[in-house]
């Protein structure tokens, strides 16, 4: 197997004494946008949290060849940028300060006193998410789409080799869904491994280089979108059939009927 940036061997996660994730193995390389899909309750969020080391797991999980379990909290935070589902900012902080929190793992704990490299990383993230004009606005006053961009910029600002986003486009209109995934795709092209949990198989097919299909805590499929989201897996795992096509060299999948 080729050396991946993030590899798992027989990864298991138990919650309340029951295995929610069972024997998951993969090797995910850099410069990849990976979609993690599966029916409700398949364990997507749990697997994502386990990948980032936020929940304990059994088996072997390594990043860059280092066991994730052996990392300190701070080193782990530098390797993995994590965007939870339904991300919120609890106080009306200015956008720039929220984005700057992405530099927290690098020791930049105070947004008012960023070092030059930290300030530059924040600026890069702000520009990537097109937030320059909103820099001083309180984040709580922004629209849903703008808030998502702020959350995303906060994750980008970590400049971690692995980025994990849980349903980053779930509550967005189509324009912002495409914007946000395009942004994550560019981050992947820039050298990162980006893993995105999503329910939207169409967007997964459109943007992902690779798709992991999870069913009942086990990896059912692992491959390029056309294969992992082929008619067989869709019927088996998702109990649906889909309209299939292609555009710009990308597979097009539109869920069509329950089977």
């Amino acid at each position: 197997m080729s050396a991946g940036l993030l590899t798992a061997e027989r990864l298991c996660v138990a919650i309340g004494g029951r295995d929610v994730i069972t024997d998951v193995s993969f090797a995910l390389p850099r410069e990849n946008l990976v979609a993690l899909v599966g029916p409700n309750g398949a364990g997507k969020t749990t697997l994502l949290r386990a990948m980032s080391g936020l929940v304990a797991s059994r088996g072997v999980l390594t990043v860059d060849g280092t066991p994730v379990a052996s990392l300190t909290a701070r080193d782990r935070a530098k390797k993995f940028a994590y965007l939870p589902q339904g991300h919120v900012v609890h106080w009306p902080l200015p956008v720039r300060d929220v984005v700057a929190l992405g530099r927290y793992p690098h020791g930049a704990v105070d947004p008012a006193r960023l070092s030059r490299p930290d300030a530059e990383a924040v600026e890069r993230a702000m520009r990537a998410a097109d937030l320059d004009s909103l820099a001083d606005r309180p984040v709580t006053e922004l629209s849903g789409g703008e808030k998502s961009r702020v959350a995303l910029a906060r994750m980008l600002a970590v400049e971690a080799p692995v980025m994990l986003a849980d349903e980053p486009v779930a509550s967005l209109d189509p324009y912002f869904q495409i914007e946000v995934l395009g942004l994550l795709q560019r981050a992947a092209r820039g050298g990162a491994l980006v893993i995105v949990v999503t329910h939207d198989l169409g967007l997964a097919a459109r943007f992902a280089d690779r798709v992991l299909v999870l069913r009942d805590g086990r990896l059912a499929m692992d491959g390029p979108p056309a294969e992992a989201l082929g008619p067989g897996p869709l019927a088996d795992v998702f109990r649906i059939s889909a309209f299939r096509g292609g555009q710009d060299g990308q597979p097009v999948i539109v869920p069509w009927a329950a089977v």
Binding site: S52, L54, A73, R74, R76, A77, K78, F80, A81, Y82, L83, P84, H87, V88, V89, H90, W91, L93, D97, V98, L101, G102, Y104, P105, V109, D110, P111, R154, V158
Partner: peptide, 20 residues
């Protein structure tokens, strides 16, 4: 004090940023 700032983003995000 700085941990409180990271916590503005919720406990999960704060933990992912290295806050115990």
């Amino acid at each position: 004090r700085h941990a409180f700032r990271a916590l503005s983003l919720g406990e999960e995000t704060a933990e992912s940023l290295g806050v115990d």
